[in-house]
């Protein structure tokens, strides 16, 4: 296991290196002078030149990259060019909570919908219920989150007036019930698409397991159906499900950009979209880097869980 962990950690290095180089270069090659933008319109050429030296914008690109990585590792993502003097790290920290809460809540909804539905479809293969699940999963995959969100707002908020159409209440400051009331629609719009995917994957994994010899063996021994489905079947399909949950968490964080804008939630996604208009590249860079790194870490954790759960995987490497 130690060797497996070591190998996995080593294989991260090129990925992290490339992700950081790509994100650094993307913003570095942007037209426009960050120093001039930070100082505004009435800055003199001398001021701009001075800030250039101060920020190290005249150094070779490799030096700038290494310095940038060093700063990021210490949690310093630079200074916002739009909100003057505000460190990007502080901006992100103040927008972090809504996004994380939304991502977790949407994943809970996804799991609660998808796993029972997927297991049901696998168990009742070929029946009307199975087809309903399949049709839902195809529709879900074809439905962009903001369209589903708009539909949900029109139905549940405008027409039926069950839930508020937009806005945000914090879990810590406003309490649980208002939080749930405001976050259910955004979480549903983020989670449903992934639920469709998870449903498909759960079904495929369950079918694979249920078709295997040891399940036939268990059945012929007279093990009860429920026990076969949950104890023998689901436990072996669980690895696939864990992967899909990990991917879902990342896609919820990324999809937040669109959904937060739709529901006026002051999270990282809204911050990122606002920063496009304000041309605040430091913020965009930091958020993209953060989510990409989180993605790498989550994939690592999934790999490690796989290795832990299935000795064949860690030995095959």
């Amino acid at each position: 296991m130690k060797k497996y962990v070591g190998k996995r950690l080593l294989s991260l290095i090129p990925t992290i290196l490339i992700v950081s180089v790509v994100i650094f270069l993307l913003v570095h090659l942007t037209p426009g002078d960050p120093a001039a933008m930070m100082l505004g319109d009435d800055a003199t050429l001398e001021d701009i030149a001075a800030l250039h030296t101060k920020l190290g914008l005249d150094d070779p690109i490799v030096v700038q990259y290494v310095r940038w990585v060093g700063r990021c590792l210490r949690g310093d993502f630079g200074i916002s060019t739009a909100v003057v003097g505000q460190p990007v790290a502080d901006l992100i920290a103040s927008h972090f909570q809504p996004t994380i809460c939304l991502a977790i809540y949407s994943q809970l909804i996804t799991i609660l919908i998808a796993i029972p539905a997927g297991m049901y479809a696998a168990k009742k293969r070929g029946t009307a219920g199975d087809y309903t699940v399949s049709v839902f999963s195809i529709m879900g995959i074809s439905l962009p989150s903001f369209l589903l969100g708009l539909g949900l707002i029109m139905l549940l908020a405008v027409k039926l007036r069950w839930l508020p159409a937009a806005g945000y209440k914090s879990l810590t400051a406003d309490g649980f019930v208002p939080f749930i009331r405001y976050m259910t629609l955004p979480a549903l719009s983020l989670g449903f698409i992934h639920a469709a995917y998870m449903m498909r994957m759960t079904k495929t994994a369950m079918l694979e397991v249920l078709g295997s010899d040891y399940i036939r063996m268990a059945r012929s021994k007279g093990v009860r159906e429920g026990s076969i489905l949950f104890k023998h079947g689901f436990r072996n399909a669980l690895l696939t499900v864990i992967t899909v949950v990990g991917q879902g968490f990342i896609s919820a964080l990324a999809g937040a950009a669109v959904v937060e804008r739709l529901f006026n939630i002051p999270g990282m996604g809204s911050l990122m979209v606002d920063s496009i208009e304000k041309r605040d590249y430091q913020v965009i860079q930091a958020i993209t880097l953060l989510v990409a790194m989180l993605n790498v870490v989550i994939n690592l954790i999934i790999d490690l869980i796989y290795g832990l759960a299935d000795p064949r995987i860690r030995l095959a490497d």
Binding site: I18, V22, L253, A254, G255, T288, V291, A292
Partner: peptide, 9 residues
């Protein structure tokens, strides 16, 4: 590396 960055971001 490119795939580690979510598509929409």
């Amino acid at each position: 590396g490119l795939k580690a960055i979510p598509n929409i971001l």
